[in-house]
Amino acid sequence: MSPATSSTITLTVNGEKHTLAVDHRTTLLDALRERLGLTGSKKGCDQGQCGACTVLVDGRRTVSCLQLAVGAEGREVTTIEGVADGDRLHPVQQAFLDLDGYQCGYCTPGQICSAVAVIEEHAAGWPSVATGDVRPEAGAPELTAEEIRERMSGNLCRCGAYVSIVQAVARAADARTPGTEAEGATA
């Protein structure tokens, strides 16, 4: 490839460094799927509308189809393949599995990456459109079913597994902070 249209970059994915020459047009999603063999991140629309390609970049959720691979250099990328702790599933993965929070499975990696970030965003006190009181002194909103639905709405599921997805995210949020009630998991 011509140097005018390609670059050699180093991507840090799931804690591992990969050096590769990429076409400047290559999206982070295509670099993961076609170059690194990490096909867990899915391509549902390739234009940022469905969320199936969601990964974590520096801990924040990103639709990897709208980010160029060259722009991800120097960032920590976490994909679905890196969410579990070795053989121990992440609580979000475990909850999706146990509660059947999916059917065909194609949106699932994006849903799970999103949910991992949602739980962190909520714990950090970030409000959403569903949050009633957004004043800083009001503190973190309760992670109700309505909050989860709102925060997970960037991830489409055509099989319509939303009811179980909401329950799974609530259960995983519970697991993160033992003893707290994720009220509204079924409300």
Partner: peptide, 21 residues
């Protein structure tokens, strides 16, 4: 019963048609 392919689906290991190398 949890899906037999469930673990593959929640870990990203399940290979779909456009992912076979």
């Amino acid at each position: 019963r949890v899906r037999l392919e469930g673990l593959d689906k929640v870990t990203g290991a399940a290979k779909y048609a456009g992912e076979v190398d």
